[in-house]
Amino acid sequence: MIRVLLADDEPMILAGVRAVLSTDPDVKVVAQARDGREAIVLAQAHQPNVALLDIRMPALDGISAAAEIGRTVPHTAACILTTFGENQYVARAIGEGIQGFMLKSGDPRELLAGVHALAAGGAYLSPAIAQWVIGQVRDDLAGLEQIESRIERLTSRERDVLSLLGEGLSNGQIARRLHLVEGTVKAHVSAILVKLHADNRVQAAIAAHRAGLI
């Protein structure tokens, strides 16, 4: 069972997201918060697998709340629920190591796919905002030519791993897809992050998108 924490100061959004999640028998909402500080307290109390956080909330914004949850409840994967009008916050969120970004207005199937990917240890970007995110972090990841040059340093197997990582798969899922042991995949991911100069899996996934590996 995937345990989920929801945090949003808009009751209609909370109700809508909860309704979508309720359609999946493998997902259970264990707590709801109306601001960032409450989200931190509830995450520490309920130990969810995934925390879905509005990017802008009273008391403490979603990015700051997600960063604190990451420090105090490290096994909880944080995902930001955003709109196109809040794009300026996304680069900061990536810098805080947040693993997912999903549009509030996106396809409900994307929400469920994202929750499952995050719970399994992967990263997830809604397809509708992936291209914008790529552009937003351009300065952090250098130019496309430099990215392609860095990807050329990867071995064939590392490229395979990066491609699946870019799809949001966890190490375990990548291992099963490529018929490898999970420890080997973990080693490949570490090597990929070093070679791409990426700080986390989200940045590596963005590099994979930019280089056309997805």
Score class of each variant (00 low, 15 high):
R3Y: 02
R3D: 01
V4R: 03
V4T: 01
L5V: 03
L5T: 04
D8Q: 10
D8S: 09
D9V: 13
P11H: 11
M12L: 14
V17T: 07
R18D: 14
A19F: 15
A19T: 02
T23L: 14
P25H: 10
V27Y: 08
V27Q: 07
K28H: 15
K28F: 15
V29S: 07
A33W: 09
A33G: 08
A33V: 06
R34N: 06
D35G: 10
E38Q: 15
E38F: 01
A39Q: 11
I40E: 10
I40M: 02
L42I: 06
L42S: 07
A45M: 09
A45Y: 00
A45R: 13
Q47K: 10
P48V: 07
V50G: 05
A51M: 08
L53D: 01
L53Y: 12
D54A: 13
I55F: 00
R56P: 03
R56K: 15
P58W: 13
P58N: 08
A59F: 09
A59T: 14
L60D: 07
D61G: 11
I63F: 04
I63E: 02
A66E: 02
A67C: 05
A67M: 08
T72Y: 03
T72E: 02
H75C: 08
L81M: 15
G85V: 11
E86L: 06
N87E: 11
Q88I: 06
Y89K: 01
A91L: 12
A93P: 06
I94A: 00
I94L: 02
G97N: 04
Q99H: 12
M102G: 10
M102S: 14
L103D: 07
L103E: 04
K104M: 11
K104Y: 04
P108M: 05
E110F: 07
E110H: 14
L111H: 09
V115W: 06
A117Y: 15
A117N: 12
L118A: 14
A119W: 06
A119M: 04
A120G: 14
G122D: 07
Y124A: 06
Y124D: 03
P127K: 03
P127I: 12
Q131K: 09
I134L: 09
I134C: 07
G135S: 00
V137I: 12
V137S: 05
D139F: 00
E145L: 12
S149C: 13
R150C: 09
I151Y: 08
L154F: 07
L154G: 03
T155H: 10
T155F: 12
E158I: 11
E158M: 13
V161E: 02
S163I: 13
S163N: 01
L164Q: 08
L164N: 01
L165M: 04
G166D: 00
L169V: 12
L169S: 10
G172L: 15
A175F: 14
R177Y: 11
E182R: 07
A187N: 15
A187H: 13
H188F: 15
H188K: 07
V189W: 14
V189S: 04
S190F: 14
I192A: 12
I192S: 08
L193F: 12
V194T: 09
V194R: 09
V194A: 10
K195A: 05
L196M: 14
L196A: 10
D199G: 15
N200G: 05
V202F: 04
I206D: 02
I206Q: 02
A211K: 02
G212A: 02
L213A: 09
